[in-house]
Computed example of a mutant assay.
Amino acid sequence: MSSSSLPSPSASHPLQPYGWDAGWEDEFAPYAPQGLVPGRVVRVDRGRCDVVTPGGTVRADTEFVVPRDPMKVVCTGDWVAVDPEGGDPRYVRTLLPRRTAFVRSTSSKRSEGQILAANVDHAVVAVSLAVELDLARVERFLALAWESGAQPAVVLTKADLVPDPVTLAHLVRDVETSAPGVPVLTVSATLGEGLDVLEAVVGRGTAVLLGQSGAGKSTLANALLGADVMDVRAARDVDGKGRHTTTTRNLLALPGGGVLIDTPGLRGVGLWDAGHGVGQVFAEIEELGADCRFHDCAHESEPGCAVLAAVDTGELPVRRLESYRKLLRENQRIVAKTDARVRAELRKEYKRRGALGRAAMEAKRGHLG
């Protein structure tokens, strides 16, 4: 449930600008008699975190919430119960149950996920128009966004670098095709264009700002905050990439309402058990697949495949199908690390493809002979 759909607490609360509502009040209620204080994590750094509380922002130790499960570590956006004033150091004693979590796989070979932001209502994917669009990367970000439980949006930044309106319209249409059901906005933070529409989106609940280095996230955050809070450095002309101007995830209350979590530029965005998210991003392929002759059609070479028929007629771009296959395979590999049933299905699929390949080679040899 998003924070915007919950009623406000009965009385005004100092944490309301940070997303506090009646739902969080109920979740925290069992800890109030213990003298603990509610707060929201605005930054995490090496086992300690900054927590905004009714009495102000405090530095707290996370020693008591260091679980074996990496998915339960303290993260920016979490709501927590902390020690009352007077303790030195003060400790985070517990995490309140998360409503949503934006998770990616780690770069390690172990089967682990990394939480980038918690309790997010809107996942805003920033994409720079200063370089050639990478639609496959947009689809990857959106799969994770849908899986998180947040509502995705794509913001095409640096729109002032595309002065031709026809060209800009084509670029927007390309992204819209890759983002069914997702609003696609064009913004020029430099000129202040399009910010009002974006403010209307992020002004309700909590939004996380995602994208590669050089996508203009820090400039966008400053424009939304109305102040130069985030460090900004110029992107390279050659590839549009910038240095990591944001090195930690920071949660900031917006002056017009809403909360923004800014994140460092993400070089790698690995899927993490995002089957539902992939299905959302490629909704038209999932719909076409319902009309395939076989219910377990892999859309590779099966007879009666409605997806391949749509490719043949031009209804479905080949690039979309290839991207869909790639993300599905990647997600299956991640899930298979912890799910024996999925591992067995993958082995069965590899054997099936191997048999088809051998049969094709034998048929080719017979034809040549």
Rank of each mutant, 00 (worst) to 15 (best):
V232D: 10
R46K: 15
P97A: 15
K326H: 14
T338C: 00
T206Q: 04
Y31W: 15
G23A: 14
L271V: 13
R358I: 07
Y91K: 12
N250R: 12
V162C: 10
P54H: 00
V208Q: 00
L368M: 12
R243H: 10
V52Y: 06
V125N: 03
L254I: 13
V202P: 00
A344R: 12
E85V: 09
C75L: 04
V80P: 03
P163C: 05
V182E: 03
L316C: 12
G279T: 04
H299M: 14
D26F: 10
P30T: 09
V162A: 04
T247H: 05
A215E: 05
K337L: 15
L225P: 02
L346Q: 14
T76P: 00
L161E: 11
R99L: 10
L95M: 13
V155T: 09
G257D: 05
V197F: 00
L116F: 06
A310K: 09
K348L: 11
P30C: 08
D160H: 04
V124R: 03
L195P: 02
A360Y: 11
R99D: 08
P163Q: 05
L96N: 02
L95G: 06
V175H: 02
G256W: 05
L133K: 03
K72S: 13
A283W: 10
A290L: 11
K158E: 02
N222Y: 10
V154L: 02
S128G: 09
I261H: 00
T186I: 08
E85A: 11
F64G: 02
F141N: 02
L254D: 03
C297L: 09
R352Y: 11
